[in-house]
Amino acid sequence: MEFNVTAALFAALTVVIYLLTNSFYLKYRKTFLNPVLASTAIIALILVLGNIPYDAYMTGGSWIGTLLGPAVVALAIPLYKQRDLLFTNLLPIVSGIATGVAVGMASGILFTQLFRFSEELILTVLPKSLTTPVAMQVASNLGGIPSLAAVFVMVAGFTGYIIGPVLLKWLHIDSAIGRGIGLGTSAHGMGTAKAFEYGQQEASMSSVAMTLSAVLGALLGPVAAWLLLL
């Protein structure tokens, strides 16, 4: 039973630290206070200082992780609520997202191959533009490393959030659809948070892009991996 007590403690610790960092973030609204980043850093520090192996932590941590699957399913609800927006702009939305996902995966493979990274790492970088729960699942299905994939997803998210507006301006992408689809396809939830700052239309477009690119990415991932292995 002692085993289960530690597992429960690790799960509870994760929830408490997350809720604390989240309320801190909601209060100060600074990008670098991102609750995932802050919780990860604090828990990682506890593990390192306490000399606790990651596997021991995951006896409880994995309990929380099981919610990822149902959460992905639940993303169908926000998409369903945006269905009118989606179906009236179906062609521009889908063509933009499909191009973005393909360009993202192709450039990811190209750049990592250029520097001769292992196949495992290439497959880990591949789903970086997808929302974290889907990216982790795709990475693990293809033979990549899910926890590292989550790190690259965050790098992509921060890149889009911080440098995205500069890039959009520079490329004269100035319509609600262009901004929203660009941010959501490349930087998932973080991009959508930035899209909110432009306005409601951008935000809706971005959240549609985030969800659809996740579905498309999950479909395209195995194809890209297969092409890579040729």
Binding site: N89, L91, P92, I93, S95, G96, I97, T99, G100, V101, V103, G104, S107, G108, F111, T112, F115, F117, L121, V125, K128, S129, F152, V155, A156, T159, G160, I163, G164, L167, L168, L171, I173, D174, S175, I177, G178, R179, I181, G182, L183, T185, S186, A187, G191, A209, S213
Partner: peptide, 27 residues
């Protein structure tokens, strides 16, 4: 891998944003 992911993110945003803006204007 960090600058690689950043560069690829730029390309993803440019491609998706540009194509959807262009396609919306065309329609």
């Amino acid at each position: 891998l960090i600058p690689i992911v950043m560069a690829s993110t730029f390309l993803t945003m440019a491609a998706s944003g540009w194509v959807s803006q262009y396609a919306a204007k065309a329609s």
